[in-house]
Design a protein around this nucleic acid. Structure first.
Length: 910
RNA sequence: GGGCGUGUAGCUCAGCGGUAGAGCACCUCGCUUACACCGAGGGGGUCACAGGUUCGAAUCCUGUCGCGCCCACCA
């Protein structure tokens, strides 16, 4: 197609649609486990099926795609495994919300029907996000798309669960866990988000029990406790003080009367109590506070649960039964006050835990749950990171990871929801207590132990009963995603894929899921596969809005990637994300920046149009090109110059991508293409053209750009002569320094490049004079160049006509001595290299002198007044020191500008 | 309370031991046969502050101030 048929402005829409279809139809990104080439593999952080592509996904997948495309072009056997996550609670909540619109609850449907509904939703939503990933250009092996709840992965989950259970790394226990009263499920510690809140500290009087025999002299008749949660007092089973606290020593072991109830509770001593906080006495509620739970265990205190699963008072709440927890708080405080038990209330800041899925305040709640014993698993993960088998980039994340791993707690993996992997445990019906969510001690009273098995059991191995019931709970969604790097490759089967691609090369993710996901994959990978799941972990930034705010629906500052892609093109968008992906700083995304890179895409388009126009019927396989497709004839020094620039660009881009410096890589190609290739090489080419070099530089540039801008580069490539229909730039070989400029010709090329640099500097100097003096192009200028070195004078002589053309100067005189600057513009380029341009007739000297005089006059008076002010002792001593400093600085600036203007004026004066 | 990051041109950010950089915005000139989503030229910075190390510091060290984020059971 000839260039006239190409639009002047790059239109991404059709181009993207066309190539996406072709790529997918050709299964271009399919990786063959038996194919050749060293393996390079990435598993996608599976997006949740709940929603659509957001900026975080866009960045995450753009970066992965750049890596995969780059490695593929480098000759690696590159595999990128795509897929989605069932996202337990999040998805269940979404579908529940849908149901609510129909006026239904999930209980109305029943478990089975509800799950069917979720699968329907999954089908719809999962396809949606997969389609969006494709639109982004993600070169995943779409034949291998997985879902965390598909059949294979379900098998992996069972295998992993049973394996851990058999190794006693999974256990079941009655324990205080984080409970979301809205989602009705347990949460792991990291699923709770803490938020600083303005609360109160209530001081409550607990009188000593009225046993006259025990009241001695000097023993206080009451203890005042301070609490942020007065409603939990109904579950108090002790008051704790520090053993060395003189105020309370005499009371230790005695009983106190619990206000609003008829219970009596003991005063206990524990060194964990802080004498300096509040009154030094703390109420102990083992069933509703994590500290108190631990304290209660050590002191064998009873646990009294006062809440129902939806955080209302239960039968232990006495008069307050059925009240919602915060209402109960109000009422209890009022009653305490009325009855004289409330001493005072102080404002108090505290951090309150919220459910990460629905923002409801989380309740510490006593229940029977499944846990993973993490310490032994974490130990191996730590070891792998310590000895560098897995490395974080940037490496400062290592510390975060290590710190967390070292202090890891057991992981609560059971969830009381319906959507997810049902735990592969069965209970013998007759022998099991009816309600697994028991509050009382001794709930684990099953006669027959749970049966944990890979295959669904038919009868109880202990008592032979066939009346078995599977565990109702499902697994934490992160349990299955923790297996992702190997479950997607076929584990537990020993597949060729697993052999070829595990461990994966790199995991690309944002820092917000290091604990949720990266840590779990490390633990499971080492435990199940005996090898860490990835060699590198690249942690990228979070995308924020132009003001640096986190994007959120409620703030209304969400920028939709799809809207951006429609507006500016996918390639421009991808390039922007890469260019902003500097390590260690979050990304502030604004449309203005994207527009800049849209312009870059257009620049590439037009430079290519120009090349196409000039290349004509050029045959790249023709005799001007060497056997390996390189080493064309380098006719001119500027051919050498551009190849030399291209060579360093190739080296810089490669090493930047290898080092995950996507911003450096992007900016390096940008600089080369726009400022070296377009601004200079193409301009030189208008004077004399070398088709082979133009062809080589353009195709090499397209190859360099391809990982960032796959659609545009593919489109242009297929308009070039010699590119056949079936091939794809994604399979071209990524250039090397040697392929661009073989070592044999490098020396000559670089010597030539130096000459071109000299020429460019002279052209720029002449242009500066024209610009600064506002000489229109229609007016001819004469230039003189003084060069102290004979070699330079020789080069300039040879290049005189090029300089004249590009600098728009009518003549170029080469001097071996500097000229007298009288009446001339004078530019010093470097030591021994100066440009002189007579301005006679080009600039109206009289007018210029007048203008200069005016400016000089203005400056002088400024300088005068400033000097005077600074000499004024009154001002210097009394004014704000900052203002004085500013004055001084601007005086210096004004003085030097004045000197420059005066010199110019002298040269113009006749 | 710990940990991490960050403060450089009007804005967004590179640079992290050797004469202050980019993009955008701004000003001037220009429709030169790829591109006005363009070209040429220009103005603009005591690199948060204070000490120190060094021949030399935006860059290293110490401290101060400002701004983020993460973790932690002080009721």
């Amino acid at each position: 197609m000839s260039f006239e048929e190409l639009p002047k402005v790059y239109e991404p829409k059709e181009v993207e649609e066309k190539w996406l279809k072709r790529w997918l139809d050709a299964r271009l990104f399919h990786a063959d486990a038996n194919g050749k080439g060293e393996a390079f593999s990435i598993v996608i952080p599976p997006p949740n099926v709940t929603g659509s592509l957001h900026m975080g996904h866009a960045l995450n997948n753009t970066l992965q795609d750049i890596l995969v495309r780059y490695k593929r072009m480098k000759g690696f056997n590159a595999l990128w495994v795509p897929g989605t996550d069932h996202a337990g609670i999040a998805t269940q909540n979404v579908v529940e919300r849908e149901l609510k619109k129909e006026g239904k609850k999930r209980q109305d449907l029943g478990r089975e029907k509800f799950i069917e509904r979720v699968w329907e939703w999954k089908k719809k939503s999962g396809d949606h996000i997969v389609h969006q990933l494709k639109r982004l250009g993600s070169s995943c092996d779409w034949d291998r798309e997985r879902f965390t709840m598909d059949e294979g992965l379900s098998r992996a989950v069972r295998e992993a669960f049973v394996h851990l259970y058999e190794k006693k790394l999974i256990f079941r226990d009655l324990y205080l866990i984080n409970w979301c009263p809205r989602c009705h499920t347990a949460l792991s510690d990291i699923e709770v988000e803490h938020q600083e809140t303005n609360g109160s500290l209530w001081f409550i009087r607990y009188p000593t029990a009225p046993n006259p025999l025990l009241i001695k002299e000097g023993v206080p008749g009451e203890v005042i406790v301070a609490t942020t949660r007065p409603e939990t007092m109904l579950g108090d089973t002790a008051v704790a003080v520090h053993p060395d606290d003189e105020r309370y020593k005499a009371l230790i072991g005695q009983k106190l009367k619990l206000p609003l109830t008829d219970r009596e509770i003991p005063v206990i001593a524990d060194h964990r109590v802080d004498k300096d906080f509040g009154t030094g006495a703390v109420k102990v509620t083992p069933a509703h506070d994590f500290n108190d739970f631990a304290l209660g265990n050590d002191h064998k205190l009873p646990r009294i649960n006062i809440f129902t699963p939806d955080a209302h008072m239960n039968e232990n709440g006495g008069d307050y039964e059925k009240m919602e927890r915060f209402e109960a708080r109000k009422k209890i405080v009022a009653d305490l006050e009325e009855k004289g038990f409330l001493v005072k209330t102080e404002p108090h800041k505290l951090s309150v835990g919220h459910c990460y899925r629905c923002r409801t305040v989380v309740e510490p709640y006593l229940s029977l749950q499944w846990f993973v014993k993490t310490k032994p698993l974490a130990e191996r993960a730590l070891q792998a990171v310590r000895d560098g088998r897995t490395a974080f980039h940037p490496e400062n994340w290592t510390k975060t990871f290590v710190n967390w791993m070292e202090n890891i707690k057991d992981w609560c993996i059971s969830r009381q929801i319906w959507w997810g992997h049902r735990i592969p445990a069965w209970y013998c019906e007759q022998a099991t207590a009816p309600n697994p969510l028991l509050n009382k001690e001794g709930a684990l009273g099953e006669v027959c132990p749970p049966i944990v098995a890979r295959e669904t059991p038919t009868k109880c191995p202990k008592c032979g009963s066939a009346n078995l019931r599977q565990e109702e709970d499902v697994l934490d969604t992160w349990f299955s995603s923790g297996l992702w790097p190997f479950s997607t490759l076929g584990w537990p089967d020993q597949t060729p894929e697993l052999k070829k691609y595990y461990p994966t090369s790199v995991l690309v993710t944002a820092h917000d899921i290091i604990f949720f996901w990266v840590a779990r994959m490390m633990m499971f990978g080492l435990e199940m596969m005996d090898e860490a799941p990835f060699k590198d972990v690249y942690i990228h930034a979070l995308v924020r809005d132009a003001q640096g705010q986190k994007m959120s629906k409620s703030k209304g500052n969400v920028i939709d990637p799809l809207v951006i892609m429609d507006q500016f093109g996918t390639d421009a968008f991808r390039f922007t994300l890469a260019a902003l992906a500097a390590q260690g700083r979050d990304i502030k995304l604004s449309e203005q920046v994207i527009e800049g890179y849209r312009n870059f895409a257009n620049k590439i388009w037009n430079a290519s149009r120009f090349a196409l126009m000039n290349l004509g019927e050029f045959d790249p396989a023709g005799p001007t090109v060497g056997a390996n497709g390189h080493s064309p004839l380098h006719n001119t020094p500027y051919d050498h110059w551009i190849l030399s620039k291209l060579r360093t660009t190739v080296a810089a881009v490669s090493s930047a991508i290898e080092g995950y410096e996507f911003d450096v890589a992007a900016k390096t190609v940008y600089q080369f293409f726009w400022h070296d290739f377009c601004d200079w090489y193409l301009e030189f080419s208008k004077l004399e053209l070398s088709k082979p070099v133009l062809y080589q530089v353009l195709t090499t540039s397209l190859t360099l750009l391809h990982p960032f801008m796959p659609f545009l580069t593919e489109e242009i490539a297929h308009r070039l002569p010699g590119v056949t229909d079936g091939e794809s730039v994604s399979k071209w070989a990524f250039p090397t320094t040697e392929s661009v400029l073989p070592a044999a010709s490098r020396k000559t090329a670089e010597a030539d490049a130096e000459v071109v640099d000299l020429v460019i500097s002279v052209i720029e100097a002449v242009r500066t004079v024209r610009g600064e003096n506002r000489i229109p192009p229609s007016k001819e200028m004469m230039s003189k160049v003084f060069a102290s070195s004979a070699a330079r004078r020789e080069h300039l002589k040879n290049w005189a006509s090029v300089i004249q053309r590009l600098a728009r100067t009518a003549s170029l005189e080469i001097l071996d001595k500097p000229a007298a600057p009288k009446g001339m513009a004078h530019v010093v380029i470097a030591e021994g290299l100066e440009v002189f341009i007579p301005l006679e007739g080009l600039v109206d000297f009289a007018a210029e002198v007048q203008r200069l005089d005016k400016e000089i006059g203005k400056l002088k008076s400024t300088v005068d007044s400033r000097e005077k002010r600074l000499q004024d002792a009154n001002f210097v001593t009394r004014a704000d020191p900052e203002v004085v400093e500013e004055e001084k600085a601007s005086l210096v600036g004004a003085k030097s500008k004045l000197a420059r203007l005066e010199e110019t004026r002298r040269n113009f004066a006749t």
